[in-house]
Amino acid sequence: MICNIDQTAKGEKATCYSLKNKKGMEVVVSDFGATLVKVLVPDRDNILRDVVLGYDTVEGYEQGGVHFGATVGRVANRIGGAGFELNGKEYRLTKNDNQNTLHGGIDYYNKRMWKTEQEDDTKVVFSLLSPDGDQGFPGNLKIQVSYELTEEQELKIHYDAVSDQDTIINLTNHSYFNLSGHDSGSVLDQEVMICAEAFTEADAESIPTGKIVPVDGTPMDFRKKKPIGRDVEEEYEALIFGKGYDHNWVLDGTGMRMVAAMASKQTGISMEVYTDLPGMQFYTGNFLEAEKGKDGAVYGKRSGACFETQYFPDAIHKENFEGPVLKNGERYETTTVYKFV
């Protein structure tokens, strides 16, 4: 259902779509950036709480630099040295994170109009053609991203892509969750669990070294749920480098499985994260600063937490990381689910 139409700086019509289920949950997405705009969930008192950070207008998403609700690609996270070799050919990318590439470079997918392929009361499908050479990557890449809301309180995000050349791809969603409500301030008292016995060590520029480090005995251990703020200020190298949690966890298991959970005692809202991917960037909004958001809210440091399911960062340069290479004609398919319980 169309819930709003806005206009971009280029004069394009940006449309929002509302998905609803019978339990009162509502999700709002936009064809500008294939963006997740709102997630409204009933709390313990049956009051709807919007649990993702965002903006009121398309102008906010155009100008904002923190990727609220964003579909991120062609390659999410970081590529060291802003380049890579594939099939014997070197490809140069945009340096937008020191000497590295972050989230595909500055020509972000979430700053583009996507085409609406399908929409009804429970599902929307967006598509984008990323041409050969786009952001520096090879191959004409045809992408579809679908958002589906189920009666089981699941928000399913499905990614589907094919390329006419070998390329690399790593799509994710960059929503910031605050289960006490997007406008409630810090998430440090909210509890998180991550099903991971290890994380990928990174240097001071957040580029993985290739070393996989056990979480046991470190502040990175979320195998049992704990408040985000319990260990976030520990004098631990990874936390010092990241200015808090901003790291890739090596998720337990394979195939579609639950990999993380978050809960707010204040509202009684809990969320489970499911994916079929090997890694997840858990990021605690360490660089948010006086960001003007929805409904007059101002988001400060650690006002939200991201659960970015992914292939490991800089995997193209690490032989021991599962590769993000998509072969010509093969299909890239992955699903992430945020389930509210």
Rank of each mutant, 00 (worst) to 15 (best):
M1W: 05
I2E: 06
N4S: 10
I5E: 15
I5T: 15
D6Y: 02
D6M: 07
Q7I: 12
A14I: 01
A14R: 02
Y17F: 13
K20A: 10
M25W: 01
E26L: 03
F32C: 03
L36P: 06
V37M: 10
L48M: 12
R49L: 13
E59V: 03
G60I: 00
E62T: 05
V66G: 08
G69A: 14
A70E: 04
A70N: 03
R74W: 08
L86Q: 09
G88V: 08
E90M: 12
N96S: 13
M113H: 03
K115P: 07
Q118G: 09
E119P: 08
D120N: 10
S127P: 08
S127T: 09
G133T: 11
F137T: 00
P138S: 06
Y147L: 03
E151R: 06
E151V: 07
E151M: 10
V162P: 04
Q165H: 09
N173V: 05
Y176N: 10
D183Q: 11
L188D: 13
D189A: 08
E191I: 12
C195G: 00
E201Y: 01
E201A: 13
A202S: 15
G210P: 07
G210Y: 14
I212M: 09
V213M: 15
K225V: 02
I228Y: 06
R230D: 15
E233D: 15
E234S: 14
L239G: 13
G242W: 06
G244W: 02
Y245W: 10
W249Y: 12
V250L: 06
L251D: 01
M256L: 14
V259I: 01
M262H: 06
S264R: 11
Q266A: 15
S270E: 14
T275W: 07
T275E: 01
D276V: 09
F282P: 04
Y283N: 13
T284F: 11
A290P: 04
G300L: 11
T309M: 01
Q310E: 08
Y311L: 02
P313E: 02
H317F: 13
K318I: 15
P324V: 05
T336W: 00
Y338R: 04
V341M: 00
